[in-house]
Write a protein that binds this DNA or RNA. Sequence first.
DNA 1: TGGATCTGGCAAGACCGCCTGCCAGAATCG
DNA 2: CGATTCTGGCAGGCGGTCTTGCCAGATCCA
Lengths: 213, 213
Amino acid sequence: MATPARRAYGGVPAAQRRAQRRAALLAAGLDLLGTEGQRRLTVGALCARAGLNERYFYESFATCEDVLVAVYDEVIAELMAAIVAAVAGAPDDTRAKARAAIAAAVELLTDDARKSRVVFVEALATPVLSARRADVARAFTALLVGQAQEFFGAETALRVGAWGEFAAVYLLGGLAESMTAWLRNDLPVDRDELIERSTDLFVLVGEYVVRRG
Amino acid sequence: MATPARRAYGGVPAAQRRAQRRAALLAAGLDLLGTEGQRRLTVGALCARAGLNERYFYESFATCEDVLVAVYDEVIAELMAAIVAAVAGAPDDTRAKARAAIAAAVELLTDDARKSRVVFVEALATPVLSARRADVARAFTALLVGQAQEFFGAETALRVGAWGEFAAVYLLGGLAESMTAWLRNDLPVDRDELIERSTDLFVLVGEYVVRRG
DNA sequence: TGGATCTGGCAAGACCGCCTGCCAGAATCG
DNA sequence: CGATTCTGGCAGGCGGTCTTGCCAGATCCA
């Protein structure tokens, strides 16, 4: 902007108006990305859905890719926070912790199909996001392995090593695929069964890895 | 074409030339889709990579989406054929059959990273392909459930039902995620271990479903 | 050899998205 | 009130893609 915002307008200070516009763009970004997909995430569509003039796009972002990244990071942060909170609030028991984490993820991502599309579909296809998704996958794998170590003890953890990481990747991939299949109505179970049976598989595989590692 | 091909040229009959051009476009399509992604799959790029004039695109396809679908179908057909052949040639034993199928899929998709990208990435993001991918996922799930029924018997299969389908989706999702993680060098195992450990998990989950179904 | 067909190259017109710049009206501050 | 700033709308140059049409040279068939 040639003339940076300084003055209050409509009783709202300049900094807050900027923040509101940025938030409106992000909300529009989640909407577009989660329904139409990355191909339709254009400056024009974004501003039209946000009810803003195109000029204001460049006030908050330089390119559409920046919006892509910001939307993705927002959803991932929300997901991480929900999982961490759920695990912290669950009873001190392997299965209860696992169930709480799975339930938090499933509920967040199936309550809002846009978020699930962002995480499971759009994150893969765009170059900028795929690198980020790899980081996220590593983080979730580490989180899962770390949780398992807390319950099975550090000595067993040492034995587990690559096997544990491999199993964690499998479980996360299976959870992702089962969520997308469920959202397509391709899994003849209700959401509670989805959570319960996923927990069963997490526990089964976790115990198997410890036993055999 | 205003004047349909009739005459031989360069010693090659018209129908064969058409088929060669179509095949060249499909090869270019796999190349572009598997490296650059759907965004770069344009008429111009396709014909440039195929060494053809843009006019010839419309001889074999009406839109770029048609190329997308043809490339995807080709890869899936190849994958299905490799799996079916591997299963048919394997010893009559649960684990051997499972291992053969997994090895065939892993080898085909990791030998050619373009195919893995088409199947695991591009198939999700494009509307035309995502519907197709859902069909493919159902087919693979049915194939896996069917194979399991052959070994555990029809009576147990009846008990298994939705549980078996759910577990099959999980295993296929896990296999997909582990392959993409392996291709990113995020799994500290070699390809034989990837196959062997995947087989372990398939057998583990399969037996669990039958036991508990 | 002459006419028909095949081939690659090219360009034009249309559409779409990007990004900048200009404008008039509304709201604010001194 | 007057000057400044904020706001939405819009137009235009730029680049990319699509699709059709034309052309000249190469090749084939009669």
